[in-house]
Each structure stands twice: as C-alpha cells, then as structure tokens.
Design a protein around this nucleic acid. Sequence first.
RNA 1: GGAUAGGUGGCAGAGCGGUCAUGCGUGGGACUGCAGAUCCCAUCUAAUAGGGUUCGACUCCCUACCUAUCCUCCA
Length: 460
Amino acid sequence: MKIYDTMQKKVVPFRLNKNRIVKMYVCGPTVYDSPHIGHAKTYIFFDALAKYLRAQGFQVFYVQNITDLDDKIITKAAQENLPTEIISKRYLMDYLKIMKSLKIDSVNLYVPATMEFRKIISQIKTLVRKGYAYETDDGVYFSVSRFPDYGKLSGQDLNSLRSGSRIDINENKRDPRDFVIWKKMKPGEPYWDSPWGKGRPGWHIEDTAITDAFLGKTYDIHGGGSDLIFPHHEAEIAIERSVSGRKILSRYWIHTGMLNIEGEKMSKSLHNYVTIDEVLKDFTPEDLRYALLNCQFNTQLSFSGELMEESRKNVNALSSIYNKLKQKAGDENMESDYSIINSLDSFLEYNIDFRGMFSKLMSYVSEWNKNLDAMDSREASLSLSALKWVNEFTGVIREGENSARSDDLIRLLLSARKSLRTAKDFSSSDAIRSGLRKLGVHIEDQGSETIWWYSDTEGE
RNA sequence: GGAUAGGUGGCAGAGCGGUCAUGCGUGGGACUGCAGAUCCCAUCUAAUAGGGUUCGACUCCCUACCUAUCCUCCA
C-alpha cells in the first residue's frame, strides 16, 4: 500500500512493523458547536481508513482527542451565561451522537484534553527544564528557535515566518514565532492550578499529552484536516520531539483536503457551512458517506446539491443490487470472489483511492444487473462477497435487515401485497407500498419477486 | 511574497505518450398494472493559453495566466 505523506510531500510506501499493529491518532473537534459536513469529510475518511486497515488484517488502535477547554468554549459559555463544562459536555454528547449516526464507530478511544491534565503539566515542566520553553507575565511559551525542524512539515521557511506580519505582536514573546503552551488566567476565566499559577493549557500541548499517554512517543499515523498542518501539527512535532528527544513523532502524516462550497472552504467563520444534521434530514448517512468518500482524500471536494443527488442515486443502485443479489444468494455459503476484490483493492493500494474504487465498482454493478437473471445462487453469493467487502469499510450500502421481528412483519405484508397484485387489486397493493415507504421501507418489484430495504429517510 | 494541490466534455472527476474512464445530466427505445429499478442506443467528436520534445501529446518539458487551501482560530 502507498499513501501520500505530508512530511515527505509525496506518495510513499506504507510500511509497518511485523506485528501488524497500527497506532493511529486523529485530531478531534473543539466542542463548542455542532459539527458541519466539512468535519464529516475528515472523520468519515479516517473511519473508512481504520476499517480498511483492519480488513487488511492490521490491528488498528485509533485514538481521537476532544478539545474540551479552549477560548471558543469560554466565549460560548460567556454568551450563554453557563459554566464551560456544561457547554463542552453538551457538544461532546452532540458530537458522539452525530458520529454514531454517520456509522463512524472505528475509534477505540475518545480522550478529552482535561483528562490528561497531569501529563500536560509534566510536559510543560520538562520543556522548561530542558530550556525549550520560558515563562512570561501571561504564560509559558515554546521557543521555536530551539527546534530547527520547525516548519519542515508545512514547508515553511523559518525566516519568512519570523518576518510574517500576520503574526500577532506580543510583547511577552521573545520571538514572534513562539507559541503558547500555558495561558495564565485572566479575570473570569476557568482555571487549573499549576507551577506557573492559575491558568489553562495551550491547544497544541493537549494533543501531545494525549498521544504520549496512549500511543507513546512515536506512533504510526497522525491525521487531521489539512488546515491543521500549520501551526498545529508543526507545534505538536516541536513539543513532543523536544520532550522525547526522538527524531520522529509520527511515521506518516495524513491530511484530508478541505470541503469547499461555492469555491471556498466551508467554515464557521465564513458562515458558509451546512451542518451534518441538516444534510441528514434529506439524505441518508450512506448518501453522505458516499459523497464525501468519492474523491481523492487529500484533495479538495466541492459540496453541492448535485453532489448529494448523484450520491443518492449511486447508493440506491448499490443498495438495490446488493439486496437483489442477497435474495438470489439465499443461504449459499459465502465464498469470496478475490478476482473482483483484488481489482477493487488495487485502487486502495495506491493512495486509498475510494473514488477510483467506486467507479470500478459501478462497472461491476452494471455487469451484475445485466447477468442477474442468469445467475445461480453461487454466482450471486460470489458477487455479493465483493459488495460486502466494500461495505465493511465504506458503509455506503443500505441493507434490508434490522430486527428479525420487523423483517418478518415486512415479509408478511409483502406476501399479502403479492396476493393483491395477483388479484389485480392495485389500489390496495399500492396502499401497502406507499404505507411502507412512509415508514422508511423501500420496495421494488422485480418480475414476480419483490426486494426491499430500509431507506432511513421517509418517502416523499 | 512563500508552501501545497490543481486547471479535462452540461456537471463532478480518473487514467494513459498512439485504443470505452466512471458517475450524474440530457434525448430516444425496451421492460412494467403503475412506481421504481434495470438494460440498449444516442448525446457530448473534452483537454486554460503559448512554445518545445516526439512519427504522434490531454498525457513529458518550459513559459504565462487562472483557482483553492495554508502561512491567524479552524477537520
């Protein structure tokens, strides 16, 4: 497998240790507001990546942080006149609920930054002791000049950063490039006690404390949106390598391209965002997963209504053939068709190209539709195995299965409907169809057979 | 100004130095009680501009122009 590594700025072979354990870390959200579909793009990709690696036989330990103390949370809390913990807890619950609704369930551990508070303090202490950080009137700063590799990940030149006029002039900093790792409390702000008085940690050191605690001083994959490359990931490298004394923090740096809308990055500050909840009112999680995976992960993707409509069609086509094949396969023992799976996998082997894989998959779907009538149960089962393989990590197929009891009820209704259709009582049979559709059950007549699946959204 | 990606048919978006991407859209047909889905045919004779290399370039090289992201909190 090969993958684009931001540090080396090219597609490189993905090599891992012999025991096939992958330690993976992805920067999670700051919990001060509901996530939008730009966030979804990143988290769905890493969900699919973790599941794909697991399907390939790797043991993936996937950790994500939650930034639950931060200026934005403080601002929000002040606006609502509530304690910061109430705000962060509310949006943490919101975030977890939404992740679940998007079928993102590959993360082994979500770690709120406040949980690793002791580690944060001990890291700052170490940095100060080793001379990498210094205390001022308003906080503790990391001294960038002490870390020559600063700028390597983002391709920034240290000197051009120094003269950068866009960096805030802060009298307390010895060097404008230095970044804060401990902020001393201002009146009215939440605080923790520390050797440097009351205050709170800076953003960058929250992550290094968590990775150090759960993944060690060197791990395999560090991921996040491309907007985190500078300064966040750059700062993480500077902090952790200064603490550990090692040459490498993460073996691979994987960054997802931004989601654009009308030619610009979707973001809170530009007020051009669409929340995940809003999209899920009109589309299924599968539709959104397909839409956001159907691109090169490290390039930008434009969001639009057409994109969602196109995805819905493709998800429908996949779900339709999936359920048709399933019906045809019956109880046939599942063997895997490796010729198909390998041809699909070849797209993932080179830079996890889900889009390329989908385009190949759609060609197979067309083939299967053509040959469906002539297929026997074994052939159907083989084709089905490829779809199951894809769905294992992409999660883009709507399956016609839920609890056994409701499945049985639906089958009962469909057999009644079949009798009505045979008797040409179409008004009654159509009433059953539209009634089921309102309950989120999609049905299609295939000659004398009827296939069905749960569509999640209510019928129009 | 610097860094990183790009500029392909109505849209999204691949690969490849000379042969169908794929999907959506559009037009027509088949099938169907109707929906839906599916299949067939067609549509689009695509490549930011200007040079160069070549028997031949969308694909390689150079130049110009343009777009987005980052250089400030941000997935």
